[in-house]
Design a protein around this nucleic acid. Structure first.
Length: 199
DNA sequence: GTTAAGATTGGCT
DNA sequence: GCCAATCTTAACG
């Protein structure tokens, strides 16, 4: 079933990031259905976390959507090149987010290869936060998109990922966050080929 | 108004 | 393994 606002508005963003493993992310862009199983996520909390874009300041053009109630997409451009896809969680005014870093393609693989410009279903297709957005056709145009609509959404297909298959580790690429960079808020499925290149 | 750096990736040494 | 690409935001002057 499609995940509802009640799911996204749970207060514990770290638990949500863990729970999203094994869920399915779908997009229907340009009339083409693409999607796959979520295998890697990271949690970003609005308090006690310097790595989160909302940790200082409040409303900026880029982060204002983070203060909406959970269940919308936060898409932003990194290094002027790649779009990163986040899911806003918690209630309005509490700017928590879950970054999707890797999915395992299941639906519309041919279309994903076309968008990525490659001809085989290698991990390069969706293994990485800037890559899966390309494969799914997600761009900054989808900033603020409601995740209970028919453009981008998550589905629970009844799959449970047991704890022994989940690898917990510090987040990647946020050394600037000081001590908070060591928080073990990155979750991935052990042994999956579709997680982002580990650093 | 100008400048520096980022939740990354891909190409070259 | 290192570095360039490229654009938005934030911190200066």
């Amino acid at each position: 079933m499609k995940l509802t606002h009640d799911y996204y508005r749970q207060p514990d963003v770290v638990a949500l990031a863990r729970d999203m493993l094994g869920k399915y992310l779908f997009s229907c862009i340009d009339g083409v259905l693409t999607g796959g199983r979520i295998v890697e996520t990271e949690a970003y909390a609005h308090i006690g976390d310097q790595a989160c874009h909302s940790h200082l300041g409040r409303f900026t053009k880029r982060t204002s959507v983070m203060y909406e109630a959970g269940g919308v997409a936060y898409v932003y451009l990194i290094y002027g090149r790649y779009a990163l896809f986040n899911i806003i969680t918690n209630e309005a005014g509490k700017a928590d987010a879950v970054l999707i870093r890797g999915i395992e393609p299941t639906e519309g693989v041919a279309e994903m290869q076309l968008r990525r410009g490659i001809t085989s279903a290698t991990p390069k297709l969706t293994a990485g936060p800037g890559l899966l957005t390309q494969a799914l056709g997600i761009s900054t145009k989808h900033y603020g998109t409601d995740l209970t609509g028919n453009l981008i959404w998550l589905e629970d297909l009844g799959e449970q990922v047991p704890d022994e298959q989940v690898v917990v580790s510090p987040r990647v690429g946020i050394d600037y966050a000081g001590d908070d960079a060591a928080l073990p808020w990155r979750f991935r499925i052990r042994g999956s080929k579709w997680t982002s290149p580990a650093k």
